[in-house]
Design a protein around this nucleic acid. Sequence first.
DNA 1: TTGTCAAGAAGGAACGTTCGTTTTAGGTTT
DNA 2: AAACCTAAAACGAACGTTCCTTCTTGACAA
Lengths: 206, 206
Amino acid sequence: MARVSQEHLDARRRQILAGAARCFSGNGFHGTSMQDVLKEVGLSAGAVYRYFASKEDLIAAIADEAFRSIRQAFEEAAELTPPPTPDVLLGRVLRRVIDGQVYGLERRTCAALMVQVWAETLRDERLAATLEDGYTGMRAAWAKLVDAYRAAGIMHSDVPADDVARTMIATAQGFMAQEALFGGAEPEVLENGLRGLMSMDPQKIS
Amino acid sequence: MARVSQEHLDARRRQILAGAARCFSGNGFHGTSMQDVLKEVGLSAGAVYRYFASKEDLIAAIADEAFRSIRQAFEEAAELTPPPTPDVLLGRVLRRVIDGQVYGLERRTCAALMVQVWAETLRDERLAATLEDGYTGMRAAWAKLVDAYRAAGIMHSDVPADDVARTMIATAQGFMAQEALFGGAEPEVLENGLRGLMSMDPQKIS
DNA sequence: TTGTCAAGAAGGAACGTTCGTTTTAGGTTT
DNA sequence: AAACCTAAAACGAACGTTCCTTCTTGACAA
């Protein structure tokens, strides 16, 4: 009867997730206690445990959101027609992910959360399965994109498309790691760097 | 005086580090208890705490070794003359790091440890400072290498050398993340992928 | 070569703390 | 009045670490 509005419930939920994400990004999932989270979100234990049954649930919700954000950025980029060159494409992905307002986190904090999620994925089979699913799809979409490059004659065809796809994805992942660890990994740096690499065709070099 | 030989002490120390590294790579530094480590290395608490004053010390020793391994792989590659193309170079780095026998870990386990070290670095200022030092040196060495490419006329000069250096390093980092998370990130995949990217000069495309 | 023994190395129970979580009782909002 | 939330206490379990005991080692005396 005296229920609060659904928007209120959703807002509370996001408030908890955002506060927890801030804690987790800086101290890791297991370096952060629930007391830390409670203090950060400004709610009592009773309130938080009304929205999440356990710390594990809270972690899973945050990791899933991170996966979703990454996957969406990659898949949106892969659907652009005509496909931009890798430098433009990956610049877009990085901007989208890192400025993508995951729980309203700053660029570096967001990148740090991603690294923490990777680490947690290594010890949680459920997360690993979710990530694997998303990765397989991304890889396929980007391999298609590489095929388009080859069909358009702007890339040599003597290399497996999947290998190029994995390499592009790895570059974006590496930039997220660098942003988390050192900061200053601007998308422009990635764009410039890729342009540099793209200009040195090994078949021309000898 | 009834000391045991220095070789014995060193062997015990490495035994502890190796066992701890196996635990940490799979369960994270804070998801692994000291009891887990004790069981894995087959020693008692009294024995382990004779070699490491605290869990933090143990973590720091392992992280330092991981940093050292990475840094050495990158710097060795950067000193090759004449400088190989990026595909060859990064293939070498990846092989060296990942098959580099860090505590005798398997490829994927070793990659997983790297990811855990990154995560820990985000919450430990001392580790962050160490990593920052190594990274700055690596970046400078690789920027020099890019300058050599340009001097040799095999790369366009309209892009900051440092940006290309960071992008190459990021690609290697991304591959380590992929190996940890999904496996199968062979150095050959990276080499092929880079060759593919290098063949699509954006200035030729239109 | 052998026996002795102090000291180093390892064992393992137990410590105090902190963890995630639940429970309690009482207040506030809709 | 029903749902939401607070504040505080308390729970057992698990944590990192310590402490005392036991075993082992190697120098040295015999």
